[in-house]
């Protein structure tokens, strides 16, 4: 799968089906009448790190909102295993949602609670653990993201990078099956960004979680991605699907190669030919 011409993996053999964790079929996304992306088809396999990339404003974060059940598709389906999320009952939807951990772009910590309360809240709500035990686990999760000792700080008292890490600690609170990250390294210094990448890799390797990341940080993409899709704002659909390292060297679409080569092909060339390779 290196280019636009072969981007529909979910119709594959039984083995691929068995390990599919999230399948997106014929998805159209729109705000009211304004179409964002159309005809998205891809499968995210269990335990892989899947990257959603594309230029600014192409609908990456919107796609993430569709994947986590915050926005209903204009058309098409999102499957978790064999369950169609938007056709499932409210109880099933809730059951699916509880497998998610989500790291928001801004951290989205609950501002009226301390960091330990933020991390502990999901534990308190969805487990029968004692408060002392919850606090201990929350401290452990915070230590994992390098925030030991900041348990009693409020989100407004820490830096943006720390908020993001605290957000990751909260996303990991319940050892999620699927971790969604919206631009995890945006706004972080290169070292923090690298540490976050390492952390995500370790999470996948030790907990076996499926990880879906929206990003356009090339260093992160090449360091951790197993599979990726590329969304295009001009043609309003995905124009590539595959391992980003392969796409960088062999994609038939110059726009994708140009993106992954950090614009080395020249902006003009890529915008001119971009539309041709869609579909």
């Amino acid at each position: 799968m290196s280019s636009a011409s072969d981007q529909s993996p979910q119709t594959g053999d039984a083995e691929t089906q068995a390990e599919a964790h999230i399948s997106v079929r014929n998805l159209d996304m729109a705000y009211g009448d304004f179409l964002i992306q159309r005809d998205l088809n891809f499968t995210i396999r269990r335990g892989e790190i899947f990257i959603i990339m594309g230029g600014s404003g192409c609908g990456k974060s919107t796609l993430l909102k569709h994947l986590v059940g915050l926005m209903e598709p204009a058309r098409g389906e999102v499957f978790y295993g064999s369950v169609d999320f938007w056709k499932a009952s409210a109880v099933d939807q809730l059951r699916i949602k509880r497998q998610f951990g989500i790291l928001y772009q801004s951290g989205a910590l609950w501002s009226s609670m301390t960091l330990a309360e933020n991390v502990g809240l999901p534990l308190g709500e969805f487990t029968d653990l004692e408060p002392a035990e919850i606090r201990r686990i929350a401290s452990l999760k915070m230590a994992l993201v390098g925030l030991a000792g900041f348990e009693d700080f409020y989100p407004s008292e820490i830096s943006g990078g720390m908020r993001k890490r605290a957000g990751l600690a909260r996303a990991m609170a319940l050892d999620p099956d699927i971790l969604f990250c919206d631009e995890p390294s945006a706004g972080l210094d290169p070292i923090s960004s690298r540490l976050l990448d390492d952390l995500i890799l370790q999470l996948r390797d030790s907990l076996g979680a499926t990880i879906v990341i929206v990003t356009h940080e090339l260093a992160s993409i090449f360091a951790i991605a197993d599979d990726s899709i590329f969304l295009d704002a001009d043609t309003k659909t995905m124009i590539a699907h595959g391992d980003p390292r392969v796409l960088r060297d062999h994609s038939s679409d110059p726009k994708v190669r140009n993106f992954l080569l950090r614009g080395e092909l020249g902006a003009q060339a890529a915008t001119e030919v971009g539309g041709a390779a869609a579909g």
Partner: peptide, 17 residues
Amino acid sequence: GTMQVNEEIDALSTFGL
């Protein structure tokens, strides 16, 4: 409203709360 801006409400509902 501010919680809406900061995605705090999204964070609640995606936790199933």
